[in-house]
Each structure stands twice: as C-alpha cells, then as structure tokens.
Nucleic acid binder design. Structure first.
Length: 478
RNA sequence: GCGGGUGUAGCUCAGUGGUAGAGCACUGCCUUGCCAAGGCAGAUGUCGAGGGUUCGAAUCCCUUCACCCGCUCCA
C-alpha cells in the first residue's frame, strides 16, 4: 500500500518538476488549460527532439535499407476510406443504464432479442428483463437495459477550402503509416530500392480519444515514430522477430531499465483485423504496464486496400525472378509489411519516469537531491560550464569561451554563473545534465577544468583542450 | 461520457463568512568560494472561470473548465 502511494507520488513529483524546470506545460494554461494538450518547454523540446533524433539515427541513418519521409498531415479522404479508418473510427458506444459502464456495441455479448435475462441492478437486486431488438447486453453486468448507440468519430475533421461543405471535408491523420503505403512506389522507384526496405516517418497524429489520461501518455494530439518495412511474403515471420528484438533493444540502449520493459504478444482476439501478429513494447508505468510501441505484421492488407481503392498497381516487379506460380518472368507481388509504430511523446514520458530519482540526504549533500539520470544522448543539455567565481572576469570570460567551443561542435551546452556552485550543480541534476565543467583559478594557470559527473557526483581534472572530445565521446559511446 | 476526488504565489501546501499566508523557488546587493551556505532588501496572486446568496465570499449555492483515481479506447 505504502509503495503504491510512493509510486503515485513519483508521477506527481515528475509533473511538478516538468513545470518547474520547463519540460512540459499545460497548453493555454492562462485560459484554464485545454484538455489533453501539452506544450514542451525549453528542456522538454530538447528532450523530445533528442528522442526522435535518436530514433531517426537508429532507423534511417545507420541503415542501408530504410529511408525517410515527411508527408502532409492532411491527406485525400479516400485514403482513410480505403484504410478503414473512416468506418473503424466511428465506434458505436452504448451506456448501461444499470451499472453505467460504457462499452462498444460491436464487442458486447450477443443475445437473441426477446430473451429474458436475469442480472443484478444498481442496488444488487436480481432483476429480469427482455433483450432489446439490437440483440446484445451490457458487457459488464449483463443488463439489457441500455442507452441509444452513439457514434464517435475518432478522426478530427476540417475543410479544405474556405467554404465548409460535405464535399471538401478532410481529416487530420490518425496515424502516419498510411502516407508510407500511399507513397510506397514513389519512394521505391525514385530511390531505386529493392525489397526488403523500409520507409520511416516522425510526425504528429491526431485522435479524438474517448478518454485522455496520464499526463502526456494519451493525448488527442501526439507524435509518432513509425516505420513500414516491406518484405517478400514468406520472409515476414523472420523480419517480424527481427524488429521486435531491435525495437526493444533501442530503449535499453538509451538507458531504460530493462526490468521496466517487456514485449507482450497480442492475444488472438486482441489482434487488429489486418494483423497477422503483433507485439507491444511495454513500459512499467506508475499505473501499470502500458504500451510504448506496437510491432505488427500487417501482411499486404494496406497495399492491397490502396491498390483496390485507387486502381493503381502497387506491386513490386522483379524482372530477374520467375513467378513461382506461372514459372514466367517477371515476378510481381504485393510485399508484406512489418510495422514498428512507436509513440514519441510516450517515449518521452517513459524516459523521464525512468530517469527520475530522489537521493536521500548524505554527507556531501545534506538536503539530498533530485536527479534525472537521463542517458547522455537524450539529455537536453550535455554540458554545463560554470565559473567557480562570478566576480572574476577572467574566469567568466574563459567559461563563456568554452561554452562557445561546445556550440561550435554542435553540443548543446549551458553557461551558468548564478548562485553557489552547489546550487548550480543541483539545478543541472534536475535538468538531467550529465556533465558539469567548472572553471576555477587553476584553469587560467594550467588550462584544466574539473568535470563533474551527474550520476555519482565524482570529479576529475581534464585539459580544457580535450573537453569537447571527452564530452562528445561520453555522449556518443555510452 | 459515467462515478469518486482536487483546483489558493513558479512548486508544495495552510487558510470554514470579516485586511490573502508559510516554506522552498525568484530578483538585487554584501559575504563565501567545489555540492541546494549566511545576511540585508525586494517583487509576486483573475484564491481555475462565470453567475448567485450576503452588509461582506478563497470559504455557502449553481454552472462551467482543467487535472487526478476507476470504467472504456488506443501509439
């Protein structure tokens, strides 16, 4: 019990820290805030960019077989008709008049209309009532006394053009994936790609979720990191296994505690209609295990749907191979797709929660400290440069020069001369800055600075001329 | 959307009808100079918002917005 309270506490403390230090603010706060919308402050924007940049680097830049795409958020409405989002996103919801649970009509237990069913009402009394013509009962208590079905379209709609009308209704994308399918041949042909290959995209998606919860975990406007990997049918199982492993490892490599991560295969009844297999990368959030990323074997479902709906062939033509069925060249086929689809904003929350640590008071620090043990690669600021004494212009000038040198090498670093040195270290600990360089009298005499490590507060002296290299190596190699 | 809870300074919170507060944080100066040191001075509030009751509302009533917990959905 006490543990649950402290876990709850951790989330609340993180939300406070996010606001206090400028990671995340509530959107439009001075107007009372807007549901589920959040803004990323000076440190938050750096962290989020580092997360997506590291994803891009690992998925696109460090591979021969994956290329990038940045597609428009508004797409032709037929795309969503073909993908099934226009239908599938209008889930009829029903509320139980007895237990007040809200559930999806299409997932409710079916019953023959007119059947007398016995269930317990709100006062737990046994009641009998006939099943309505709709032919289902409450998925929770079994009551047939239900509200009307109400359709909820989960896509945001707007109009393309100044006059609002049915004909020019368009939608904000509910996922980035469809742009990769629609552009499949454009990318493949322009870049002379051979199967297997992937198309990656990072960007915002929008869903009118029924319930939003858990800070930035589930919001109506969110950021995705998705990659569609096109493979020859038959090799899909192997690639599915490959990407499951690779994606889990990505989080581990960026410092998430492996004991807080797991791969959870979907149950058969949980699988989306298009998927042959799906596994979620889950993180142990304060409220329980929850999804960071889904890796799905989408088969040729999407390309087939778009091929049918658009009337354009989306097949790969391999002139050097014979069709296994006819024995003739070329071999034409629709590739299968393995999709690792990650939530970037969810990853940000996981990185923050996993890094959040409170140290009790110790000999060196009587107040204890709050420290974000972020991996150096995702840390918003890599190095803080601090003159030991503000009054000495020689020290401040030297420190500022060092910061400039870091900037010149593309390393985000920060200059701070305000308050005592201990207080400045504490501020950087809360910001997750892995390294502090302190410029003191010795610096001017022998061109050395102390480097102080966030995680264990250890200090050592290094040559100023090597500072950039040392920090860069620690950021890149750790 | 349903049920329960919360909303007062940047953060954590006290304040149950009678002059809006504390700690930390923040700004300036002095002292100190390697882990949130001390002193002096200072600034800071639509008491979430709107309406009502009252001589008087942070406090009572109504409406609304946002957040948290459960149900539900998803990356």
């Amino acid at each position: 019990m006490s543990q649950e309270v402290s876990v709850d506490d951790r989330m609340n403390k993180l939300v406070s820290l996010c606001k206090r230090r400028g990671f995340v603010f509530q959107s439009s706060e001075i107007y009372g805030g807007l549901k589920s919308c959040y803004d990323y402050g000076p440190l938050g924007v750096e962290l989020k960019r580092n997360v997506t940049d590291n994803w891009w680097r690992s998925m696109v830049h460090e591979r021969e077989d994956v290329v990038g795409l940045d597609a428009s958020i508004i797409m032709h409405p037929d795309v969503w008709k073909a993908s099934g989002h226009l239908d599938g996103f209008s889930d009829p919801l029903v509320e139980c008049m007895d237990c007040h649970v809200r559930f999806r009509a299409d997932k409710a237990p079916r019953m023959e209309p007119g059947t007398e069913v016995t269930f317990r009402d709100a006062k737990k009394k046994k009641v009998t009532a006939p099943v309505l013509d709709r032919g289902y009962v409450c998925s929770d208590c079994g009551s047939p006394r239900l509200s009307e079905e109400r359709a909820f379209n989960l896509m945001f709609s707007t109009h393309l053009g100044p006059v609002a009308s049915e004909e020019n209704t368009v939608y904000l994308r509910p996922e980035t994936a469809q742009a990769m399918f629609v552009n499949f041949l454009n990318v493949q042909q322009s870049y002379r790609l051979k199967i297997p290959f992937g198309i990656a995209q990072v960007g915002k998606s929008f869903r009118n979720e029924i319930t939003v919860r858990h800070f930035i975990f589930r919001s109506c406007e969110f950021e995705q990191m998705e990659m569609e990997f096109f493979v020859e049918p038959g090799s899909d199982d192997e690639w599915f296994e490959y990407w499951k492993k690779a994606r889990l490892q990505w989080y581990v490599d960026l410092g998430i505690d492996p004991s807080n991560l797991r791969l959870r295969p979907h149950e058969k009844d949980e699988l989306a209609h298009y998927a042959k297999g799906c596994s979620d990368v889950e993180y142990r959030f304060p409220w329980g295990w929850d999804e960071l990323e889904g890796i799905a074997n989408r088969t040729d479902y999407d390309l087939r749907k778009h091929q049918e709906a658009s009337g354009k062939k989306l097949e790969i033509i391999d002139p050097n191979r014979e069709d296994p069925n006819t024995g003739k060249r070329p071999f034409r086929y629709l590739p299968y797709v393995i999709e690792p689809a990650a939530g970037a904003t969810r990853a940000v929350l996981a990185f923050l929660l996993d890094a959040y640590d409170e140290e009790p008071p110790s000999e060196t620090r009587k107040d204890g400290r709050v420290v974000l043990r972020l991996h150096p690669r995702v840390a918003p600021i890599k190095a803080a440069v601090l003159p030991l004494i503000k009054k000495d212009e020689n020290l401040t000038a030297r420190a500022r020069a060092i910061v400039k040198e870091f900037w010149g090498h593309g390393i985000n670093s920060f200059y701070d001369e305000k308050d005592s040195i201990g207080r400045r270290y504490a501020r950087q600990d809360e910001a997750g800055t892995p390294f502090c360089l302190t410029v003191d009298g010795q610096t001017l005499e022998e061109e050395t600075v102390t480097i102080r490590y966030r995680d264990d507060m250890r200090q050592e002296r290094i040559e100023v001329s090597q500072a950039v290299d040392i920090v860069r190596k620690k950021v890149m190699e750790s």
